[in-house]
Amino acid sequence: MKLGRACAAGAVLWAVALPLTAGTALADETGPAAEQPSSPVAEQPSDPSAEPTETAPPSVEPGDRVPGADAQAQARARAADAGAPRAQVAVRPEGAPETGGGPQETGIGLAVTGSAVAVAAAGGAVLVLRGRRAGAR
């Protein structure tokens, strides 16, 4: 009987003491992690129930942030595209404007005009000479 009571008492003590020792062990294990950059959440490593919530945010947050940020960035880009002002010159021409006829055009024009005048003058002179000759005869 005494042995049974002793065993029962030992079991109760063990059951009561186990969480305390587990907490100590966890605190020892998280010691190196505490050397990482501290944060308000990381300063509570001894609470076993906090472990999942402590580790979950880092694994969830990036996952949540990246797609969320991408979506927001894409939405902003779409809005910017939709609302982006167009260029003030709607269609930009290529090259340089050709806004000159050219001086040789002037030269050609003068040459043609001069030739025509010369031909007319020569023809007139011939006619006058023929008329005089006819008159002389």
Partner: peptide, 26 residues
């Protein structure tokens, strides 16, 4: 240039003319 802003609108309005042509000043 009809694809540029009208004169007085914000932006560069573009007007073109010849320096010469047909043997005459432009």
């Amino acid at each position: 240039y009809e694809h540029s802003p009208t004169p007085g609108e914000t932006g560069p309005s573009v007007v073109l003319g010849h320096v010469d042509g047909g043997g005459k000043d432009g």
